[in-house]
Nucleic acid binder design. Structure first.
Lengths: 341, 341
DNA sequence: TTGTAAGCGTTATCAC
DNA sequence: GTGATAACGCTTACAA
């Protein structure tokens, strides 16, 4: 079976306590005995049982992350990139990651309760906040360390640590860019209202229109889910009822890519008389055809910073800023070219 | 603090044992008491401490996965896709995932020892096997359940459960396709020899050449690491010393994409007089410019099947086949068009 | 049907 | 410096 402290204790003649402390590097152990014990531990191939250690010390050195399951077809690069950033940084901080994929029908809060209430992690990372987010309420109530990618919706109390990108300014810049290119009929595909950033992006759109002296038309705005399919359908309904639209802004790149397909299916030449823009700058945006104009979020970096912030919170280290709002960067590519002449 | 069995026991008047069994759904508990206990547990918001449970029952319902850290620039879609497949399937099987990113300088085996020897997981998933893979030797020695994406190198004993794609046939098909398109000088970029599939792919290349009555030239073969940069450099050295080469096959898509850039930088028109092909069919392959011809692996599905196999192994369920060799599918895209006339 | 007690492998407290 | 002993919160023989 497993080599445990007891085995080393017996073989060395010392007590379990001393062995434990010797291996933990306490300085109230004779250097001779420490050496001796370490050697035996090494030859026996001792590997501490981390479950026991975690149970006893109430510390897991593990961060939890619950992500939406992503079925086959629509792999979601946003989450992949975020996870990579989180994983890399966690590793540098010597934390592991406990990940649970959330299959649509399942009870999401149960997954949180198991991780947090089940003592499996020292802290949680949340992504993609929602209006009145139940998960945030739960974590606050539990007083469990957590950090969030995203803020609450406008008007909500943001009394928790987060890193978010300024969606409002981001969409505003995108729409301003399209207006400047000469587009006067710009459609918008928003995610469901329950997503926290929806209203920010909606506001950014309104602001840009009014700055460009274009009037806001409710029939130029449509809702869809944050996938390619949502963008495809959104663009379809937008274009069928308002064929005068010459540009569509989607609230993430996946939707924008879907919108692009829809427009192309209708015979519109994206990048020529028609424009499409997105948000995020996932890798596929660059490789799309035409390449997609978008508001870039530093996703990987956000993942890293979330981890650093969370670990500081867990370990009680001071953290300069617990609420970070990053700017997005307008990335102009072929999908919005050639309108202005 | 945490609500524990003891609290429910006190409040209900039953013993900890009975509470434990009532909540676990044992049928040797009076239905009345079960009801009563469940109610109290619910009102108290009882959440079992999973660490304690795991320690006691020696069962974690967690699968371990150690992946290479992927720095900022070169996010590796192969691993992302594999992880998504693994995560989705694990969730359906009610397992969580413990993930540790392997930062280059770190001691990889230590990470395995911590997960496995530390009793943190019920099984491990390995990806990208290497010649004489130390990790496999370790897991076999520990008799810890594991499954592998990839086999041992040719000649090694494959006495472990795996799912792999037939690399040899895959590359063979790619090279045959290029030969058929009229290419007679086909370069090959192999990954480092320590990667287990390197020799399979090398062999596939040789076979296809001889089937096409082309002679094998050692100077048409070059090694590089499995990233864009490896492909870029590989193509550069290939083309500088053998400018007569008209097609390059890389052993994964990332390298192929790098090779494509290198060729384009040299002024070659990929998809016209020059061809490039890869292996894997990551999403970027389709969106590349020109789109990349490649041997497709069903990465997501492999992830799913690995999990199903591993869970069966863990739970002692029968598993029909523990060594699965899947075919790859030749996907012909623009990067290999227009040579034959 | 229910309870007592042991034990999973650690770490922490307190004596010696 | 070192060693008993008691937790951590749970499951599970074995008794009653």
């Amino acid at each position: 079976m497993q080599v445990k402290l007891k085995d080393i204790a017996e073989k060395s003649g010392y007590s379990i306590t001393t062995v434990s402390r010797a291996l933990a590097g306490y300085n109230d152990v004779n250097e001779q005995t420490r050496q001796h014990i370490s050697e035996i531990a090494a030859t026996l191939g001792y590997q501490p049982n981390l479950l026991a250690r975690q149970l006893r010390s109430q510390r897991t050195y593990t961060l939890g992350l619950i992500i939406p399951a992503q079925d086959q077809s629509f792999s979601n690069e946003f989450f992949s990139q975020l996870m990579v950033g989180i994983g890399d940084a966690a590793s540098l901080e010597h934390y592991d990651l406990l990940i649970s994929a959330q299959v649509p029908g399942q009870d999401e809060m149960a997954a949180y309760r198991r991780m947090v209430g089940g003592n499996r992690v020292d802290g949680m990372i949340l992504a993609r906040t929602r209006q009145n987010d139940e998960r945030i309420a739960y974590l606050k109530k539990q007083k469990h360390p957590f950090v969030v990618n995203g803020r609450g919706a406008p008007g909500e109390a943001n009394d928790f640590p987060y890193i978010d990108v300024d969606s409002q300014l981001g969409i505003r810049a995108v729409v301003a860019h399209l207006a400047e290119r000469g587009h006067r009929d710009i459609g918008l595909i928003l995610p469901p209202l329950k997503i926290a950033f929806t209203e920010y992006r909606h506001d950014g759109y309104r602001e840009a229109l009014s700055a460009a002296r274009l009037s806001y038309r409710a029939d130029y705005v449509v809702y869809g889910d944050l996938l390619r399919s949502g963008g495809y359908q959104g663009a379809q309904s937008l274009l069928s009822r308002s064929p005068q639209i010459t540009a569509i802004v989607a609230c993430n790149d996946l939707m924008a890519l879907g919108a692009m397909s829809a427009a192309q299916t209708l015979g519109l030449r994206v990048g020529q008389e028609f424009a499409v823009a997105g948000f995020d700058d996932i890798p596929a945006a660059e490789f799309a055809h035409p390449a997609l104009t978008t508001a870039r979020q530093p996703i990987y970096e956000i993942g890293q910073r979330l981890v650093k912030m969370l670990v500081s919170l867990i370990e009680g280290k001071p953290v300069k800023q617990t609420q970070v709002l990053l700017p997005s960067t307008l990335v102009i590519r072929a999908s919005s070219e050639n309108r202005k002449e």
